[in-house]
Amino acid sequence: MTSASPLSRLPPGPLLVLGYGNPGRLDDGLGPAFCEALRLRLGGDAHRAGPHRMTIRDAFQLNVEDAAEVADHDCVVFVDATLPGPGTFSFEPVTPSTRRAEFTTHSATPAGIMGLARDLLGADTQGYALGIRGGEFGGFGERLSPVARCHLALALDHFTALLPRQEGRPTVCATPIRGEGVHHD
């Protein structure tokens, strides 16, 4: 794991978890798979009424209108796959930017979305990017590689540890995931 800014807890207030990628392109689907695993771990829709009023959403790619949803939340965590390399996952703050390099027609970066939210919608949303290391990107298939599933489990543990705990019971259950709901052999 790498982290430029160690964080013990995510800030309070409405939280958006936005996982993106193509579930039909193997480990490119790590972002949506993370969302599915997070829903399972948090017990279905219970997260919506929790202390974070958390919204969990998956998408094929980031689009400019995501800036509007980002602006509706105090904090956003972008979840995406990263290409094979050292480490298991990264968790880093995102600085808003509207440099041209942050946007193309077919994709936008978290920094670009944050920049649009700030500049056009007056948002002061805190942003983080959770990058989960994948291992297999070269073909078609609605499944994750073994290494991606392992990294997903570690990233999910890390993320849920950052969530606050509700009075009387923890928000997060301790059941380890095995890629339930995301593996389609």
Binding site: N63, V64, A67, T98, R100, F103, L121
Partner: peptide
Amino acid sequence: PVDRNVLGVAAAHPELARQGILMRK
């Protein structure tokens, strides 16, 4: 072409870009 994109529109015509985002949403 550095300006000829949606971010250029956002910089020069922010209200138009904002409307585009919210209409799409």
